[in-house]
């Protein structure tokens, strides 16, 4: 570490300038601007900032709207109904794919196929599914009729529950492969010694999964949960293009609500800002809660101990240096 040389330090600053400048321009400033707009009156096709007598007016308006509160609930339930089956299936598949006893062949092929929906444009997938679910002649209707699961073609688009379910399913379908690969790499990172020890203790496959695998991939599961939630609560593409928030606003997510307020002819930028700040705060709070609930307590304690030790050593070192300096001064005095 010490080899780097002191005179080169300025290059550290110089090389991080582009990042810092662009970050300030493209993220920090827009965030600040969004905050400011949220506390002022700023609407219309050619908006200007006007101070409000009550700076929280937009927030009050947005929060009092039934549509917004419902959109938050909708967003959360669509996300939850995609995440639970997603992590469940991903865990099962990951357990199978890492189980040497099964001697599974073609894992590479399955991974490629399972991950495929994730890479395809969400906009295209939304329209593809709306074509598949078409009424009266659509692929899904045809299949259901073929297998006599329904008697006549069903108009899926007018059923709020089914529309919500389909959107959850699309999200699940797009993301389970990703989650599976992430969990597999987590499981492969566990030291084989632990599994061997469990084998010697006579644990069966299920026990090994519950008592060895699961606790050891806790961090990775937390990572999946948090990233999925941050992405899921901003869900826009699929509700916008699959059902346009309908029927009867049943699939109007928070992001769709912000879009409707600010960008589809209503020009209510101030209320859109307030709504996005509220969404932002909700995301931050939920992530913080998740981190707190699932934090690695042992690691935190270790880290704390490490820091205390370092502090102690530093103090001791300083004391030693001081003592030696004093000694040196004394010696010099004596020499004189």
């Amino acid at each position: 570490m010490k080899k780097k040389g002191f005179s080169y330090a300025k290059w550290g600053y110089i090389f991080s300038i582009p990042f810092v400048v662009v970050f300030c321009l493209a993220m920090l400033y827009p965030i600040m601007y969004t905050l400011v707009i949220g506390f002022t009156e700023y609407r219309g096709a050619l908006p200007t900032l006007k101070a409000l007598s009550d700076p929280f007016k937009n927030y009050k308006t947005v929060l009092s709207e039934e549509l917004f509160r419902r959109s938050l609930k909708t967003t959360f339930s669509i996300w939850l109904w995609n995440f639970i089956p997603q992590i469940g299936l991903a865990l099962i598949l990951a357990a199978w794919f890492t189980d040497d006893h099964l001697k599974l062949k073609g894992k590479g092929f399955f991974k490629v196929v399972f991950y495929m929906p994730n890479i395809i444009t969400a906009a295209t997938i939304a329209l593809l599914f709306s074509s598949l679910f078409q009424f009266p002649k659509g692929v899904i209707n045809d299949i259901l009729l073929e297998f006599k699961m329904i008697d006549e073609a069903y108009n899926f688009a007018v059923d709020p529950k089914i529309t919500k379910g389909v959107i959850s399913f699309i999200q699940f379908w797009m993301w389970f492969g990703y989650t599976m690969i992430v969990l597999i790499s987590g499981i492969l990172g566990i030291s084989p010694d632990i599994f061997e020890a469990a084998d010697i203790d006579g644990a069966n496959g299920f026990q090994k999964f519950v008592f060895v695998t699961l606790p050891n991939i806790k961090t990775i599961m937390l990572y999946t949960l948090v990233t999925s939630m941050i992405g899921g609560l901003q869900m826009f593409d699929i509700p916008h293009l699959y059902s346009d928030g309908g029927p009867n606003n049943a699939t109007r997510t928070a992001a769709k609500h912000i879009y409707a307020k600010g960008f589809s002819g209503a020009y209510l930028y101030d209320e859109a800002s307030a709504a996005s700040v509220i969404l932002f705060i909700i995301i931050i709070i939920l992530s913080a809660i998740l981190f707190f609930l699932m934090r690695d307590k042992d690691a935190a304690i270790l880290e704390k101990q490490k820091r205390q030790m370092e502090k102690k050593y530093r103090q001791e070192y300083k004391a030693q240096v001081a003592a030696q300096k004093a000694k040196l001064a004394e010696l010099e005095k004596e020499a004189k």
Binding site: M1, K4, F6, Y8, A9, K10, W11, G12, Y13, F15, S16, F19, F23, A26, M27, Y29, P30, I31, M32, Y33, T34, L35, V36, I37, V226, I230, L233, Q234, A254, A255, I258, G262, Y269, A272, S273, S276, V277, L279, F280, I283, S287
Partner: peptide
């Protein structure tokens, strides 16, 4: 590669903004 005073702070900052959801920027941007 470099040892500079604000390095640690800068890296923590990068980690913190990693989580910022894009939706918050949209109106201002």
């Amino acid at each position: 590669v470099y040892d500079w005073k604000l390095k640690r702070a800068f890296f923590s900052f990068v980690m913190a903004v990693m989580m910022v959801p894009g939706q918050i920027v949209v109106v201002g941007f």
